[in-house]
Simulated scan of single mutants.
Amino acid sequence: MVGTVSLAPAAAAQTPEPTPSTSSVPLSTAETGGVTILKKDPGGDVLAGASFTLLDSEGRQAASGKTNTDGQLAFEDLAPGVYRLKEVSSGSLLHDLVDDQDVIVTPGADTPLTIIDPYKPATVTLKARDNKSGKLLPGSTVNIGTGDTTVLTLTTGVGGTASAKLPVNSRTGTHFWVKETKAPSGYDLYKPSMSFTAKPGSPVTVTVTNAKTTSTAPRSSEKPSGKPTTDESTSDKPTPDQGDSTSAPSDAAVVAETPSSTASPAPEGTLAHTGADATPWLLGGAGILLAAGAGAVFAARRRRVDDDSDGPARS
């Protein structure tokens, strides 16, 4: 038996359309955008060597680079969208980093950014010491400021020190003043105002010295020794109502302040003061007595003369 072979009709050959690959087709310039960065410091000087990284919306690195000698950096051919710009290094020992920020990239345009790096803050350390022993003292409070503005307030702790970051706005440093507002317990306030200059990123130490309080003024309830007051000098003279008691009345101090209580007491044997001045009457009475005595003497002398003149006639 002879076998037969059946041939199927030939299929029409068709060339399939290729499927485009989005990963292999670059975006045109009109479909992409970019970011240009200009880096400066607060004084306006451009900063070279600052490093930046650009992250896409998924947190993946889309671009990175450093600013050139003109302080510029360009990221190009970026797909449109929102990116996160992160400064990795300022490239300077004097400057600090800026916070991360979002950047929007639009098709066919470059997004310009001017980034200003602040100066690094100085680290200020406050110390309060005993002016003689040098012992560190807790509880000293000072204000630190510049111009008319108080920048920060520090209080020394149990170790006698306190530290904080101090903002600096100049490459050569910022001038600050220091004023103690509260002294440690048992010490006098340090009244002079001091000053110092803090440079970017540098530590600085400020020391106030306090003297121990030496005031020995007696309390109001105590009387100074060796100098009796007016109420003490009069308290040992009994009043008619007190009899022989030598204690001063409770309001003796008030009484002692009045002018009448400071007058010296009348000597024993003198007449009691009645409130009226008897001096004119005494002087008048004395005059009358003198006149009467002079008259009596004159009459006695006249009688003797008369007797002498009559004597010879009687013999």
Results as ranks from 00 to 15, higher is better:
T150I: 15
V151M: 12
L152M: 07
T153S: 15
T153R: 15
T153I: 14
T156A: 09
T156V: 07
G157C: 04
G157I: 05
V158C: 07
G159Y: 11
G159W: 09
G160R: 04
G160Q: 06
G160M: 05
G160E: 02
A162N: 06
A162V: 05
A162C: 04
S163F: 08
S163T: 12
S163H: 04
A164H: 03
L166H: 01
P167R: 07
P167F: 02
P167S: 04
P167H: 05
N169M: 03
N169W: 00
R171N: 03
R171P: 08
G173P: 00
G173F: 01
T174S: 05
T174L: 02
H175S: 08
F176H: 12
F176Q: 06
F176A: 06
W177A: 07
V178E: 10
V178A: 08
K179G: 05
K179Y: 15
K179E: 09
E180M: 08
E180R: 08
E180L: 07
E180Y: 01
T181A: 09
T181D: 09
K182T: 15
A183G: 11
G186F: 04
G186W: 04
G186H: 06
G186L: 01
Y187G: 01
D188Y: 07
D188E: 05
L189P: 06
Y190S: 13
Y190R: 13
Y190L: 10
K191C: 08
P192H: 03
P192C: 01
P192W: 00
S193W: 13
F196Q: 05
A198V: 10
A198W: 03
K199N: 15
P200T: 02
S202A: 15
S202M: 13
P203S: 13
V204E: 11
T205Y: 06
T205C: 05
T205F: 14
T205W: 10
V206Y: 01
V206E: 05
V208E: 00
T209K: 11
T209Y: 06
N210E: 00
A211V: 06
A211I: 00
A211S: 11
K212I: 09
K212W: 02
K212C: 03
T214Q: 04
T214L: 07
S215L: 07
T216R: 00
P218I: 02
P218E: 00
S220R: 12
S220E: 02
E222F: 15
K223L: 12
K223I: 12
K223G: 11
P224F: 14
P224I: 15
S225I: 12
S225K: 11
G226M: 06
K227T: 04
K227F: 12
T229I: 13
T230N: 12
D231N: 13
D231C: 14
S233H: 11
S233C: 10
S233K: 09
